[in-house]
Structure formats: C-alpha cells, structure tokens
C-alpha cells in the first residue's frame, strides 16, 4: 500500500493553488465566530447504536461539545438547530438538561421537525424559535424491545413520562393539563395517540417563544449576549 508522503504544509498550499487553478475557488478568510452551533438531526441516539443507514445524533458527541462551549471563554452563545424525529428519552433529556444549565445564552431553532424527545431539547434553550412550516409531534413515551410485563414496568414508564412533562412545563409557558391533553389526543396521528402541532400553534400554546428563522435566531442571540455582558459586569 503506497501513500504519497508530503509535508502537511506543502500539501495544504498545493491544495489551495490547485483550487484556484482548476476551479477558480479561493479559500474564505478565517473569521472567528463568537456563536457556536449544535445541530440535532435524525434520531437522538442513546444507549443503543443504530444501524449505519440511520442518520443519528449521538449524545456522546454532543455532551463534550456542550462542555467545551461552556468552558471556552471565546464562545459567547450557543445556537441549537433541530430537525429531529426524536429518539432515546434519557439521551434527549440529558442533552436538554445540559443546554438548560449552560451559563451562556442559548437559542434554539426548530426547522422541519422537532418531534417527540426533540420537544424538551427545543424548550431547554433560553429562547426558542420555530419555522412557520416546522412541526412538533407530542406523544406518550414508549419502550421497544423485550419488556418484562409487570406492574413495575408500567410504573417506570409513567415516571419517565412525568420527567419529560415536568421538564417541558418548567421550561416553557405551556401548562401541564394542556400538554397532557395534547399527548393523549386520539385521531390526530395515524397509528398512535398524540398531536402534531405546526409552527404557529406551538407559539400559541406557549411551547415555543416565537416564529422565525435563522436571522431572527442570530439577532436574538446577539441581544442575549449583550444582556449577559451587562449582567456580568454588574450593570442592572
């Protein structure tokens, strides 16, 4: 097996010249961003590894990134972009708790879909946005695989459901009764109980703060960063 060996710097320089010569492309100047982005796409992957055909967001990738964002003084804010179908409840809640406890301003944006366990992740940010066409599915949690059919299993499932509901109601303006009703509605989903809510409805219910896109999210983020700066130097 022969691998051409080149000095890393020469190779990089060579690539740059090649890009200009062949494609007319130039490298963009390197700029530092004070806002970092985390995308939650596909399935939220937890304790089980999904087959490679599945697009997943792994919590073991996200959690160290969140620690790095919290720890790096050059990062002033975090934007969380969601387009997820949901996934592992505990992994989703772990990510949501991490985002909630960041000391830096966080803004979330739901694009396309923020279903199931995507809902707590969306509400965990300081301020949340949803695109006009984006949807969120709210449904009761469920277990797949081999389940021991005893009363304790149901109690455990019930407790897990309460954890999700408590997190959502504590971090958004939706009240528990409304949320439970949405969760147990019949006739909205083809083979399940629950509700699909679209952009505007999510704002009306108080689940999400505002309708908007990436421009609005960045604008809000900059406003929150300014506010945070004033707070840290003691101006009220």
């Amino acid at each position: 097996m022969e691998v051409p060996e080149k000095e890393p710097q020469n190779q990089e320089q060579g690539q740059k010249t090649e890009l200009i010569n062949q494609l007319g492309q130039t490298q963009l100047p390197v700029a530092k961003s004070n806002i970092h982005v985390i995308t939650i796409v596909g399935q939220v992957e937890g304790h089980l590894v999904m087959p490679p055909q599945n697009k997943t967001t792994k919590y073991e990738h996200i959690i160290p990134q969140l620690v790095a964002v919290e720890q790096n003084p050059e990062i002033e804010g975090l934007l969380v972009i969601l387009n997820t179908v949901g996934g592992d409840v505990e992994a989703g809640l772990a990510i949501a708790e991490m985002i909630k406890s960041l000391s830096k301003p966080t803004v979330s944006l739901v694009l396309g879909g923020g279903h199931s366990i995507g809902v707590p992740i969306a509400v965990s940010a300081d301020y949340s946005f949803i695109a006009h066409s984006a949807t969120m599915t709210i449904h009761p949690i469920r277990l797949t695989g081999l389940v021991i059919g005893v009363q304790q299993s149901f109690d455990y499932l019930d407790k897990m459901q309460d954890r999700v509901i408590n997190f959502i109601t504590a971090n958004s303006k939706v009240d528990e009764d409304t949320f439970r009703k949405l969760m147990t509605t019949t006739g909205e989903l083809a083979r399940d109980i629950g509700t699909v809510i679209v952009g505007k409805e999510a704002v009306k219910l108080g689940l999400i703060d505002e309708l908007g896109g990436v421009g609005d999210a960045i604008r809000k983020m900059n406003a929150l960063i300014e506010e945070n700066k004033f707070k840290s130097i003691g101006v009220h």
């Binding site: 690539q15 963009l28 530092k32 961003s33 970092h36 982005v37 964002v69």
Partner: peptide, 13 residues
C-alpha cells in the same frame, strides 16, 4: 464534520 464552530463548515478541506 463534527464541530460546533460554524466557520469550520466553510473550510473547503
């Protein structure tokens, strides 16, 4: 690319 820095995504390599 696994990164939180949006500028990394502008890097051609």
């Amino acid at each position: 690319l696994l990164s939180t820095d949006p500028n990394d995504f502008l890097n051609q390599s």
